[in-house]
Design a protein around this nucleic acid. Structure first.
Lengths: 238, 238
DNA sequence: AACGGCCACTCGTCCGCACAAGTGGCCGAG
DNA sequence: CTCGGCCACTTGTGCGGACGAGTGGCCGTT
């Protein structure tokens, strides 16, 4: 019998309550069983129950009111459904039709700034056109320092079927940790107009991808036609 | 002696440690005193110290390693520095120069949709121009259902010095809970061109403000010239 | 010098208990 | 009927103790 590692009890209590909320057994607005009831029902100490409940409250599943009880709020939204255009850009696989250009170029000023290298340093540029329903829906240009690209297939003109992120992870063990994005509205460049087939204003996204140490792994510039794209975000107001 | 309310001890412990981190006494990478040392030093129970440390860890101030100790990471960035144009729009005070128009109009289609009312329902519209360094930097239009506006000064053409959020909170006890925002790129409308003095592409922000129950309190439409505005965001990549 | 076990120290989890403080209903006095 | 106090119930906070498990250094054996 290979006694699998049991998760800590407070986590088990959290899971139990989360499941009851998701199954609808505890509906939003309902009062949860009191701490003492849960203690009896689940056969754990109050410390454990309290820790579970307080963690759930911090995560937004429930709300606790001193002297009244704990009340169900529902699965937290976590605002995590924000659209992350630059993340998907690094995760999408490339195809022969979508890949427009792969070249070794000297970094333009704004790219050098993003990558933290000197202007005109040689870098790898990959440009592709994303399509939706057959129509071009975005131009995505990725800029990679040579140190990062060396030993990978990023500098080769063949499409990366598995996407940039997965490729760098597999071949060079590079881990993406966080992304910083700056969004603005601008007119599309000449190339973008050609590739998109429209000169409507675009959302211009400049992004940098960082590893856990904060080092910039690569930079990105996206052009998303405003007529096709909306970036949605939900956030709490203190 | 009016014994002021003392914050709970675990919060005091957190504060103490945060202050030592910010003062540099505990530098990033340093190992914190062990739990037992803190217990002796601060004269509290281990439960209390542990709770403080675990909360600090959850908030990103420190890192805890089983069997080794707790280590300083530094003040957490929290990615909360994302720009929230629609939030600031409701918090900024109005002035006579900035307020362009207050009117009772029938809701245009997209506004009715955001507010969840029938098209052509009468609503209150307030429009103002934000300025930065004397130059117009944004056009902010707020749409308020009559039920919300009634009893407040939102329908009066005088500027709300304290801002919309504070006014609604004070006069009608309405609490803002969360905001959903949709950002796109578009050409400015005729009115916006006049007010902004430029026809460059703008970031178009459509937002709705919700109370804790999810009810829409008001809708907003912002026009942010792309040449002046960037929305920055930093997010973790799982 | 290299190995391996012991041990002190760390954090992780859990328990039972205690008291404070907020809420709301019951119930008797008026 | 109304009011106010009492009391049962809730969560908030805090303590001390206990055991488990991961880490790393000391030290004796080989």
């Amino acid at each position: 019998m290979s006694m699998d590692f049991a998760p800590p009890k407070y986590a088990q209590v959290m899971r139990a309550i989360q499941e009851r909320i998701e199954s609808g057994e505890y509906a939003p607005g309902d009062m949860l069983p009191s701490e003492t009831q849960l203690v009896r029902e689940l056969g754990v100490g109050r410390t454990t129950v309290v820790r579970a409940l307080q963690t759930l409250a911090m995560q937004g599943w429930i709300e606790r009111e001193h002297g009244r009880g704990s009340f169900v709020k529902g699965r937290p939204e976590s605002g995590a459904d924000r659209v992350r255009p630059s993340l998907t850009a690094t995760e999408q696989g490339e195809s022969a039709e979508s890949l427009v250009e792969v070249a070794r170029v000297s970094a333009p000023r704004y790219v050098a700034k993003l990558l933290g290298v000197a202007e005109r340093t040689p870098v790898i540029m990959r440009r592709r056109v994303a399509r939706e329903g057959g129509l071009p829906s975005a131009v995505e240009t990725v800029w990679v320092p040579l140190e990062i690209a060396v030993g990978s297939d990023l500098d080769k003109p063949e499409p990366l079927r598995s996407g940039i992120r997965r490729h760098l992870q597999a071949v060079k063990h590079l881990r993406f940790d966080h992304i910083t994005e700056r969004v603005t509205a601008r007119k599309p460049t000449k190339e973008e107009v050609e590739l998109l087939g429209s000169s409507n204003p675009v959302l211009g996204v400049l992004a940098t991808v960082h590893d856990p140490a904060g080092t910039v792994l690569l930079a990105m510039s996206l052009a998303l036609p405003g007529t096709l794209h909306e970036l949605e975000d939900v956030y709490k107001v203190s």
